[in-house]
Amino acid sequence: MLEIKNLHVKLEEDDKVILKGVDLTVEAGKVHAIMGPNGSGKSTLSYVLSGRDGYEVTDGSATLDGEELLDMEPEERAAAGLFLAFQYPVEIPGVGNMTFLRTAVNAQRKARGEEEMSAGEFLKVVREKAKQLKIDAEMMKRPVNVGFSGGEKKRNEILQMAMLEPKMCILDETDSGLDVDAMKLVADGVNALRDEGRAFLVITHYQRLLDHIKPDVVHIMADGRIVKTGGPELALEVEHNGYAGILAEVL
């Protein structure tokens, strides 16, 4: 589904090279985890895939079902089925959460040549999905992410994901800032979306999220490259020995 080949990326601002040849293939129906120390390039990878400004791709490619993502605008990538759950969801004052979500859903439908969802239909679907994530009606009326707690922000990201039904979901440190109960809620939300036609790329520092979202494949990223790939046991190894041991072994 997602195929990244030899991806090299530097910052536009100061020419600093962040990604130094990332190769990664995620198959449909699978959950891949990327772990790695701070500054290894994990978040940059998620931003480059979703099309954020400020990065220059100097080499390589990233395709979604054979289509080159790197040539597309961010909204085209979204319509093609890519979704990024932000590490730091952005506040938009004055814009109701419900309005935002409906605008997004209909924008993607329009881009794909589908009919817009009626207000009634939308409301029905969103209520059902919000309930699973314990998001109440009051939270849907509040402005997007404004005054949301850490847990509310992350649950809101998962609600957006559930409504937009993407093929390829990237979760960027979705566990950061969450207590155990909140993490469980978020993980349940993600697990409910696991599907043969959908793939996940879960970026995290810690193994604990992977107790709840069981990965099929675990990658270790360091200094802008994937340095080791293995099964779920690799995450446990990180948990017990830290990154130092693994990196010493690889480099």
């Binding site: 909204e75 952005v90 938009i92 004055g94 935002f100 997004a104 924008a107 402005p143």
Partner: peptide
Amino acid sequence: QLFYCRSRGMDEEEAVALVVNGFCK
């Protein structure tokens, strides 16, 4: 804010309008 809106599928014009709308609400 614009990137957040666009990553959810809105084009740039829609994203600007949404943010300005919120500002004036």
